[in-house]
């Protein structure tokens, strides 16, 4: 009886989760009347606006990942090594982006960095792009921080650092040659999460008025019939690919992990 109930629960869950997806997939294939086709996808792919916004978001995601790694890895390293008492504080800080709505954050940015402020970032395209990247990095921070923190917890940080130092390594070498390679898997999973977040992000890009993929999705949703479904399916596939890559990276790393 219990078994039946739990199977039933799983079935309900699967239906609840997959039915809309299947429906959307089916709808996205129905652009040509009377038969299934990939016309919607072809139309999306051929849209120059899709190409421009998607390309822009991919570039922004990559920049955000690099920026996030450069900020988070040394910070977590230093806190774990020298200021372990600050860890609860770090946990709290890095949770804030999940608690504070993005709209609040972006309005804060605009207030702080508008053209009449001390640092008029929004005055130029490049400045706005930089601001957007910082915003993305903040949104990804909870995930990036936790991924890197878990990665660093798995190695004997202090002794490895000291071993490298006694062999002549300075801080940069320690970070680049010893710490980063040993938390690469953790960093990768943080990176894929960041990628998934940035690709779908709407609020920041829209309010900072940058041509990102998120606003394009919303625009397409309001102005086209079949293409939004195709776009949604594609975005889903992309997110899932990221998740699978995380799994793959974790699995791939198994043989370099040392059983003590």
């Amino acid at each position: 009886m219990k078994r039946i109930l739990s199977w039933a629960a799983i079935a309900v869950g699967v239906v609840y989760f997959f039915l809309p997806l299947v429906g959307m997939l089916e709808f996205s294939l129905k652009m040509r009347r009377g038969e299934y086709s990939l016309d919607a996808y072809r139309s999306v792919m051929g849209d120059p606006q899709f190409q421009a916004t998607f390309g822009y978001s991919v570039v922004m995601a990559c920049l955000t990942i690099v920026f996030g790694v450069l900020v988070v890895v040394p910070t977590v390293f230093w806190v774990r090594l020298k200021l372990p008492r600050l860890r609860p504080f770090m946990e709290f800080i890095t949770l804030l982006p999940l608690v504070i709505p993005p709209i609040v954050i972006v309005f804060g940015y605009i207030r702080l960095f508008n053209t009449s402020s001390w640092l008029p970032l929004t005055g130029t395209t490049l400045g706005t792009d930089f601001l957007l990247m910082c915003g993305y990095a903040v949104l990804a921070l909870p995930y990036m921080y936790r991924a890197v923190d878990t990665g660093l917890a798995a190695i004997d940080l202090r002794t490895l650092t000291e071993a490298a130092q006694s062999l002549g390594a300075g801080w940069i070498t320690v970070l680049a040659k010893v710490i980063l390679p040993n938390v690469l898997v953790a960093v990768l999973s943080g990176a894929f999460l960041t990628f998934a977040i940035v690709i779908g992000e709407y609020v920041f890009a829209a309010l900072l008025d940058r041509p990102a993929f998120g606003p394009y999705l919303v625009w397409a949703g309001g102005n086209k019939a079949y293409e939004p479904a195709a776009l949604a399916v594609m975005t889903f596939a992309l997110t899932w690919a990221c998740m699978m890559l995380i799994q793959l990276a974790t699995k791939f790393s198994k043989h370099t992990r040392m059983p003590r």
Partner: peptide, 30 residues
């Protein structure tokens, strides 16, 4: 003097080999 400027070799109880490097790369690190 900072540790990396002293030219002192150190061996730890926990071995502390760099797990991502081969034995040869570990020995050649310094």
């Amino acid at each position: 003097l900072r540790p990396n400027q002293r030219n002192i070799g150190m061996v730890f109880q926990a071995y502390a080999l760099f797990p991502n490097l081969t034995v040869a790369q570990n020995v050649g690190f310094g």
